[in-house]
Simulated scan of single mutants.
Amino acid sequence: MYKTQTRVLVIDDSAFMRKMITDLLSSNEQIEVVGTARNGEDGLKKIKELSPHVVTLDVEMPVMDGIATLKNIMDTNPIPVIMLSSITKEGSTKTIQAISNGAVDFIQKPSGSISLDIDKIKEELIKKVIAAANVKVSKHPKSTEDVDFKTAVNQTFKNSHAQTIVAIGTSTGGPRALQRVLTDLPDDFTTPIVIVQHMPPGFTKSLADRLNTLTKIHIKEATHGEIIQKSTVYIAPGDFHLKIRKMGTSFAVELSKEAERSGHRPSVDVLFESLAEIPNVNKIAVLLTGMGNDGSKGLQRLKEKDSSTVVVAENEESSIVYGMPKAAIKTNTVNHIVHLHQVGHTISNLIKKPRGM
């Protein structure tokens, strides 16, 4: 259940943005803006004084920027933080860093010097703040040693084909979850992975670039028409659906601007449904943390077309937001419900076999 009212502190160096964000949030009766701060140092003092449930935090500020402020919050008094970011390359890079360092989510700042289109983000901002208020933020996340691995998967596919594709869908909390899953895969992991992460244009490239520095597996933003290669992870670019299509004995990336699905482009459903149409390939579909139910319809389609598809969902304990995995589990298509720290191991154990892509 939601708290009676979500107490929010707004930290931004722009007086205009502080006023606009306050007005937008205050328009919802579930939210009370308890204060504002003009930079990180001011914000840290206000957090101690006002005890907010959620903080909105500008990425780029003087005196103490959003990255340094977030680190201090996470080290001393962890509370849910939503970053506000510009769409510049530096802004998107810092935002991905912030998400990886503990921020729950981010909002893309309205474009334009006067920010006249800020009301476009009103619904998204309110939705994310209310969701963030229900997120448990820990100073010391569980280490791998704290997780029960008794349910580790040792099976392989029942009907083993020569080629395998892993498809992953995620939203809120996804960048951190993806980092965990991809770095848990062995360095010699060769099966291609295709990912839909709900994120605006520009940010998916920064996400791919950051993740690519953390593992020997090649991680990139997908491009239209490219042939899917071994030992490579493809992340759908923001504002494009990603489909997989068969080309001879290979697979290709197809990007499209088709209508949004359930408010999303890229959509996990679109990715999963495209995979469902490809015969004679081992399929692993994974649903990680995220708001909403994107991916559920695609999972049902996958199982209808190929009952040997293996579906893995992150469990409630480790999910930042238990929306997408919960919706997936309700479809009765999920084979394995596992802690985030087990997802990478589950994937690699499932496809350990003499042959494979």
Results as ranks from 00 to 15, higher is better:
residue 183 T to M: 13
residue 118 I to C: 03
residue 45 K to V: 15
residue 171 S to H: 01
residue 280 N to R: 15
residue 320 I to S: 03
residue 210 R to N: 09
residue 220 K to G: 07
residue 119 D to M: 14
residue 353 K to E: 15
residue 194 V to M: 04
residue 212 N to Q: 06
residue 343 V to S: 07
residue 194 V to I: 12
residue 256 S to C: 10
residue 116 L to P: 08
residue 3 K to M: 00
residue 116 L to E: 15
residue 19 K to A: 12
residue 76 T to F: 06
residue 65 D to C: 02
residue 57 L to V: 05
residue 239 D to R: 00
residue 245 R to Q: 14
residue 83 M to C: 06
residue 279 P to E: 15
residue 143 S to A: 07
residue 252 A to T: 13
residue 12 D to W: 05
residue 34 V to D: 09
residue 211 L to T: 03
residue 68 A to I: 04
residue 79 I to T: 04
residue 270 V to M: 09
residue 298 G to H: 08
residue 114 I to V: 15
residue 174 G to Q: 01
residue 349 N to G: 11
residue 152 A to L: 10
residue 23 D to E: 15
residue 332 N to W: 05
residue 63 V to L: 01
residue 112 G to N: 12
residue 300 Q to Y: 03
residue 301 R to F: 11
residue 28 N to K: 02
residue 134 N to Y: 05
residue 235 I to S: 01
residue 242 L to A: 06
residue 216 K to N: 13
residue 338 V to L: 12
residue 151 T to P: 01
residue 321 V to G: 03
residue 307 S to M: 10
residue 121 I to F: 04
residue 207 L to T: 06
residue 45 K to D: 13
residue 340 L to C: 10
residue 80 P to A: 00
residue 61 M to Q: 04
residue 207 L to C: 07
residue 288 L to Y: 02
residue 110 P to K: 11
residue 100 S to W: 02
residue 223 T to Y: 11
residue 351 I to A: 06
residue 260 E to L: 14
residue 199 M to A: 06
residue 233 V to A: 00
residue 189 F to I: 04
residue 305 K to Y: 09
residue 352 K to V: 13
residue 26 S to Q: 00
residue 36 T to P: 03
residue 340 L to T: 06
residue 134 N to K: 13
residue 267 S to R: 12
residue 272 F to Y: 15
residue 148 D to L: 01
residue 110 P to F: 09
residue 219 I to V: 15
residue 108 Q to Y: 08
residue 52 P to D: 02
residue 40 G to S: 12
